[in-house]
Amino acid sequence: MADVTGVGGEAVEVRVVSGDVRDVREVRGVVPWGGRAREGLRGYRLIVAMWIRSTMAYRASFLLAAFGNAVISLLDFVAIAVMFSHIDALGGFTLPEIALLYGSCSVSLGLADLFLGNTDRIGVRIRDGSLDTMLVRPVPVLAQVAADRFALRRLGRITQGLAVMTWGISVLEVDWTAGKVLLVPVMVVAGAAIFAAVLVAGAAFQFIAGDAAEVQNSFTYGGCTMLQYPPTVFGRDLLRGVTFVVPLAFVNWLPALYVLGRPVPLGLPQWTAFLSPLVAFLLFLPASLAWRAGVRSYRSTGS
């Protein structure tokens, strides 16, 4: 039996069933760098599909949970709206403008939370050693961790964010250009990717510090709470920190301010509003390296 490599370098699996011993062996070709990602996505899909099926077995319970999720996050925005019954502007921003900031980061975090939200549970798995079982399956661990207990009810937060954002945009009188129209979806998706990278890095960090989940939450949930408000209400040092150190400002501040026709904070040039996808990509590199290092340093438990 020779190694078999498929067209385009894709791993091909050959199972040989021989004779009456029913000896089944398998030969796999060299898995190229793209193969791992593909295997991960495939495994992720399989596990997610299974969780959705099992959620749908209790449809009423799912609908209630999703509805509750949306209502709770909606109340969150209602609180801001109530505040505006006493003031006209916050940090120079009107309510519809804040709705755009609020909605976009809510959708971004909601997407990251939906697709990767369970990575913060990895601390528990590392401590009790149940990560062992994931390491003996033929699917990248990150895909398994991310897909673990996939919860569709998290669509609630995304729905709410979209609603608030849509309302904001419909009320605002934006001077639309092609660039701005394009920037809105790009902002939401790149924002989700930035949060996702933070989640992966946070998960990697939990291999070293068992209960780092709270640190991770302060960047994701805490970060999103900050991004809901205009940058003008925060100090310059904080702005520098979230622009250059943990670049959360690229989730929505920079692109949204550009859409609103306001100056980009810290006196940065206008084109930086379009950098979000690049920032997300650059964040993923160290995050995935940290993740690999984390898995390699995994010590399991004594039994």
């Binding site: 398998e26 796999r28 898995v31 791992r36 062992d132 079982t133 390491l135 003996v136 033929p138 699917v139």
Partner: peptide
């Protein structure tokens, strides 16, 4: 090559 190995081994804890 953990994932490649996974196809060839069975593990019971």
């Amino acid at each position: 090559e953990r994932m490649r190995l996974a196809h060839r081994i069975g593990v019971v804890f």
